[in-house]
Structures are given as structure tokens and as C-alpha cells.
């Protein structure tokens, strides 16, 4: 069910929600969190809602989409309520803000949050330089950004590092989880030797590659080098050097990885790029500060061969698609 409330106020939206609940039976039961999505009023609105709806299968939530429209227009709030089949396992409130109101999304969001439930703010596109200071970020205990969606992903990742506040996280980090899991599993096996050095290879503007290098540096405390592979492939390879030979995880085609270890047959492993909904569902699974992410961000500065400046060109299609 979709209900449009043009030119409205937050309290009218609240009224409408209670009304729907009374007429349709208990629609809003068992929500476990509030998810605030901050976007421009563009195609991104629907894409983000779709991802949130799919993630809501795992985390029933109230989704509040703050879509910022033209600032030159007159002050106006257009709201839309979606419940039932149009909203996955969640209820979606799309709040389109125009004019001066566009900068005061928090004033509309605050009265519409579910009581007591944690708040997560997600910027699927361009995110503020310091998410924790942003008014919509301040509402949340967890702030999700996406460096890969920035015009200059590596630079965006740099600013995540300098502006880090506990509760921050980035989808470039969740895209990395399968790689991290496989590398961790590889070290669970004999021979139990120390890792002496690490090389991580990936596309120049791929922020996940940098984070992987940072994570390995933070955990292993050995020299880590970052190398560049041709654009378009995300993360290409991670090689952990050990006395008896290297542990190599290589993914040339962006789909299937090969794990090589001395004395073992090559093992193939599906390692496709993760869609946003999967990363989002993972992000919503935990709401406490991610210390491991923080350590990986900090350790990026100790990675050799890493470029922190702007990369050429505008938003790269490769970065957008993740590791």
C-alpha cells in the first residue's frame, strides 16, 4: 500500500501511520531498528529503498528516506508512506524536502523515529566529510557511508580515516568480508608459520583494496605493499609471504577466486562482488563500534605504495561495483 501526503508535516505523517495501523491491524510490530537513508531526490531514492527492503527481510525496520530536492524552491515536505508488499518487511517513509528545509532533514526525522529502537543512518551516495557531526548522523549510533560511491573514492576513504568516530562504517569495508574470511581461514591450516610480508593488488581507485591492505597491516604488523592492477577488476589478489611459500588468493575475473598454498592443490572458490543489499544487511547485523575497521583505517598509512591523492577522471564505474 502506498499513501501520498503532498505538502505535509511530520505530525500529519505520524497521524497517517497510526491510522493505517488501526485500520489494517498491527502493521508496525517487531521492528528492530530505524534506518535513515540520506540521498538526493533522484533515481538513487528507489535503488536505496530496494536495497533496504531486501535487507529488511533480515532486519525488520522503519525506513526513513530523506530525499533532498531543490534548495531554490519554496519550503515544502512531500511524504509518501509505503507498507505491506511495497515495503518488504519494513515500513518506508519517503520524505522529500525542498527549499531551506532540505538542510534540516533531522527536524522531520526526529518525530518519526520508532521509540527506543536504534537508529542507523546510511548515505548511499555522497556523504558528509564528517558523518558523526552531520545532524542526521548525530541521531544515529551507526553511520554507514560508501567511499566507492564518491567521485574520488580513495580520497573519500582518506577522509573517513581522519574523521573517524566510533560507530562509523563504510560499505567498502563490508564488501571485503568474504576476502577477509578466506584469508583468515587459510591461516587456520598447517604449516603454522609467521607471515613475513604481504602484497595486495587491486584497481587504483578501489577503496576496498586499500582497506584490505590496512587490515592485514594492522593484524599482522609486517610490511604490506599495495600494487595497482588494471581498472575494472576490484581487488585482484592478496599474497601472504611465508617461509615455506606464499598463500595466494587471486581473483582475475571478478567472480571466481583461486586459493594457492604450498603443498596443497589449488582450490577454487566463488568470490563474486557483493551487491549493496548484502553489504547493508551485514552492516545492520551489529550496531556497536567496529574497532577492527578503525584499526584497518589507521594502518592504511603504514602501507607502502599507496596513493592517497585524487585519481583521474570522475566517478569510476569500477569503484562503484565494489571489491
Amino acid at each position: 500500500m502506498i499513501i501520498d501526503l503532498p505538502s505535509t508535516t511530520a505530525s500529519a505523517v505520524n497521524h497517517a501511520l497510526i491510522d493505517i495501523r488501526e485500520r489494517g491491524g498491527a502493521v508496525a510490530v517487531g521492528r528492530v531498528l530505524n534506518l535513515v537513508i540520506v540521498t538526493d531526490d533522484s533515481a538513487q531514492v528507489e535503488q536505496s529503498i530496494e536495497a533496504a527492503n531486501e535487507a529488511s527481510m533480515e532486519h525488520p525496520c522503519r525506513v526513513l528516506v530523506v530525499a533532498r530536492g531543490l534548495k531554490r524552491a519554496g519550503t515544502r515536505l512531500d511524504a509518501q508512506i509505503r507498507v505491506g508488499g511495497d515495503a518488504g518487511a519494513s515500513e518506508v517513509l519517503v520524505l522529500r524536502l525542498y527549499g531551506p528545509l532540505a538542510d534540516h532533514g533531522d527536524s522531520v526525522v526526529v518525530p518519526l523515529l520508532l521509540a527506543d529502537c536504534p537508529v542507523v543512518t546510511w548515505w548511499p551516495g555522497v556523504s558528509p566529510a564528517a558523518p558523526a557531526i552531520d545532524p542526521l548522523g548525530q541521531l544515529a549510533q551507526r553511520r554507514i557511508t560508501d567511499a566507492a560511491a564518491a567521485a574520488q573514492p580513495i580520497k573519500a576513504l582518506e577522509s573517513r580515516r581522519t574523521a573517524y568516530t566510533p560507530g562509523d562504517t563504510d560499505l567498502a569495508w563490508s564488501r571485503l568480508t568474504p576476502w577477509r574470511a578466506l584469508l583468515a581461514a587459510a591461516l587456520d591450516l598447517p604449516p603454522y608459520e609467521d607471515v613475513d610480508a604481504v602484497t595486495v593488488t587491486g584497481a587504483a581507485d578501489n577503496p576496498s583494496t586499500d582497506l584490505l591492505a590496512g587490515w592485514l597491516r594492522a593484524r599482522l604488523e609486517v610490511p604490506v605493499r599495495r600494487r595497482t592492477s588494471p581498472p575494472g577488476g576490484g581487488i585482484h589478489a592478496a599474497v601472504l609471504e611465508r617461509r615455506s611459500g606464499p598463500v595466494e588468493l587471486v581473483r582475475p575475473d571478478g567472480k571466481v577466486g583461486t586459493l594457492r598454498q604450498p603443498g596443497q592443490p589449488d582450490r577454487q572458490v566463488p568470490l563474486r562482488r557483493r551487491p549493496v543489499r548484502e553489504c547493508l544487511a551485514e552492516e545492520l547485523r551489529r550496531l556497536d563500534p567496529d574497532e577492527i575497521y578503525y584499526a584497518a583505517l589507521q594502518a592504511m598509512t603504514e602501507v607502502e605504495g599507496r596513493r592517497t591523492g585524487a585519481t583521474k577522471g570522475s566517478r569510476s564505474a569500477d569503484a562503484r561495483r565494489g571489491p
Binding site: 583468515a184 591461516l187 593484524r219 599482522l220 547485523r285
Partner: peptide, 24 residues
């Protein structure tokens, strides 16, 4: 340098809750 020893895997940390433990 962190030691890789049996059962002490430097890449694993109890605080790293998102890391799934793959079967060996």
C-alpha cells in the same frame, strides 16, 4: 610480528564479529 601458531590466528579477533568462520 604476531606469531602464527596453532589456534592463535592473527587475522581472527573476537571483536571482529562480522568475520564469518569458514569451516577448515
Amino acid at each position: 610480528a604476531m606469531k602464527v601458531a596453532r589456534r592463535i590466528n592473527p587475522l581472527v579477533d573476537p571483536r571482529d564479529k562480522r568475520l564469518p568462520r569458514i569451516a577448515g
